[in-house]
Design a protein around this nucleic acid. Structure first.
Lengths: 188, 188
DNA sequence: TTGTAAACTTACTAATTAGTAAGTAAGTTT
DNA sequence: AAACTTACTTACTAATTAGTAAGTTTACAA
């Protein structure tokens, strides 16, 4: 009867819940109930909620590293499109990104979680910065500021884009994507 | 002994808490304890947490309407600066904006709250759109897309800017402001 | 086949949560 | 001065929370 993937199902559901309503808005009971197991089964795999939260972030870090590898051989514009597409999928599924979810609840979360999250944020920001710097050198992307600044602008557009889509509708998000591309001199 | 401003203090603290750690991360006990009153005093002024949450959003709506009136006589660039400055203050105080706070916890909040919040979001978006449209017509702001789209871009920059500042530091936010202005053709 | 470990369940506990009912003290109105 | 209202406190309750200790079942190895 032992489901070997229970641990993974808990992890996936926890990430979904964090990105649907926030870390402090779901309970171990909700996870166990929805997976058809008992409360203590969740504690067996993740002894405390903080450990569960940390594992969600760590698995997101691994996922982003995989994303980097998988897209490394694509053209710079395709890499940017792949990055943007992960947010489009979020928007369609009504999920915000982890950066948004964790930063908004920041002072209500265990410090360990926010510290590990800082690492993921840097990782993403460095990757986008690099992509933009190379793309500008190549003449692929056009912008008139430091690549770090433009990276912050694009990441904030995407992060809050999926948030505001919850309040204004999904067209707002797809419209926003067009704006990002226009400002980069794509979409001609 | 009756403090006439207890109601207002509760309201202010509740907004602070929502924007520090989120609606589901604070309790009536935390409010009453920090204000030196009893739990039931908070329930006297705001019978349920939902009512308290709604009043926080309603007072933010009123504050934005006041902001509109107060800045109506300023130049368009000054109005934009005043708008941006409210976010700079948030960033310095480590507070996210209500749009971000409510949208991230969206599916963990009473529907009444999210519905009222949609109104505030529209109000802000319409105002920024109008400001940009007028500024473009005047030749004050330069951008190459619909004013609604540019409004979404700027609002998402600011909303997630204060969020990401928690994870990457406040310089990230001030740098972002420069980027916004550069893209509008200001900052020459 | 016996032993061991992984993956649970059963059955709790202590703390925290939002919310309430009944009382009280200090103004305010009539 | 009596009646009423505002702004609370005291003293609760029922539900939910994260977390635990002690079993039980299943698979797999020695």
């Amino acid at each position: 009867m032992a489901r070997l993937d229970t641990r993974q199902q808990i992890l996936d559901l926890a990430e979904d819940l964090i990105r649907s309503k926030g870390y402090n808005s779901f309970s171990y009971h909700e996870i166990s109930h929805r997976l058809g197991v008992k409360n203590a089964a969740v504690h067996y795999h993740f002894p405390t909620k903080e450990v569960l939260g940390l594992e969600v972030i760590r698995s997101a870090i691994q996922r982003f590293k995989d994303f980097k590898e998988e897209t490394a051989s694509l053209s710079l514009e395709e890499q940017l499109d792949a990055f943007i597409q992960t947010y489009s999928i979020n928007s369609e599924n009504d999920k915000v990104c982890l950066v948004g979810a964790i930063s908004v609840e920041f002072y209500g979360l265990p410090e360990n979680m926010t510290n590990v999250m800082k690492g993921l944020t840097r990782l993403i920001h460095d990757w986008v910065t690099n992509l933009l710097a190379m793309g500008k050198a190549e003449g692929m992307f056009a912008f008139d500021m430091k690549p770090e600044t433009k990276a912050t602008m694009i990441i904030t557009n995407l992060a809050a884009g999926v948030q505001i889509a919850r309040l204004m509708g999904n067209e707002t998000f797809s419209d926003l994507i067009k704006g990002i591309k226009t400002d980069l001199g794509l979409n001609k």
